[in-house]
Amino acid sequence: MFQNNREGLFLALPAAVFTGLLFLLPVGFLLAEAFKVEGSWSLQGYIDFALKPLNQTVFLRTLKLGFFVALLSAIIGYLCAFCIINLNDKSRGRVFGLVILPLMISPVARTYAWIVILGRTGIVNDALIGMGLLDTPIRILFTETAVFIGLLQLFLPLMIISLVSAMENLPKDVIAAARVLGANWFQVFTKVILPLTKDGLVMGGTLVFTGCLTAYITPAILGGSKVLMLETLLYQRVNVANDFISAGIIATILIVMSFSANQLLKRIASARQ
């Protein structure tokens, strides 16, 4: 509308300069640091990092957890989204509010609850022993299962939100039309719903996957040092060993993975057309 572009630049620059100088620059330094070994530029840091078995395990575990949490939330997400959009307006608003609610609550509180549930004397163990299925409590806390459950609970709402808004934008009655044309539910899903909601799926998938990659509290509380993920590994490397090279490398990995996940999902989505 307004043609005075210098004025516009003047309004937008403070935000950009602020983030650029005080945020991106220091982060850039940190990333660059990983390429410096004893004062000279080299990839040695990366090579050393890649060769350590622990790092490999943690890297693969993070990928694996991220992938499966995203996959399961997509499945649950579609089921839920489909149920939610079929509600009447009033209950839809309510359910939607309840889905969003956990996002607003401190992740510390959200994760802490799982200790009470999954712990040695937690609800699950008590219940299993009470039913006579177990003699002694099993360890659930500090296993990948615990981290998986925690992450799923943390990020499922993001997937549901993305899919619900994608489904709300479906043209009216397409599902009914497909049914009338003779499609079974599986065909309705693969031929109508999936292609039409793929943007929502990409969005939700990216949010969940990158959320899992960069989650700290859940692996820290529910996985501890037994089930390290990249973020907890980073914290440990810095705190225990002052190892800023590893920190920079992990940081780079996290950023690159988040970015590629998004690109990859986009690619897959557009290839399906």
Binding site: P26, V27, L213, T214, Y216, L234, S258
Partner: peptide, 9 residues
């Protein structure tokens, strides 16, 4: 996009 832990560090 940038993981928070890196920012803090």
């Amino acid at each position: 996009i940038v993981p928070g832990i890196i920012v803090g560090l």
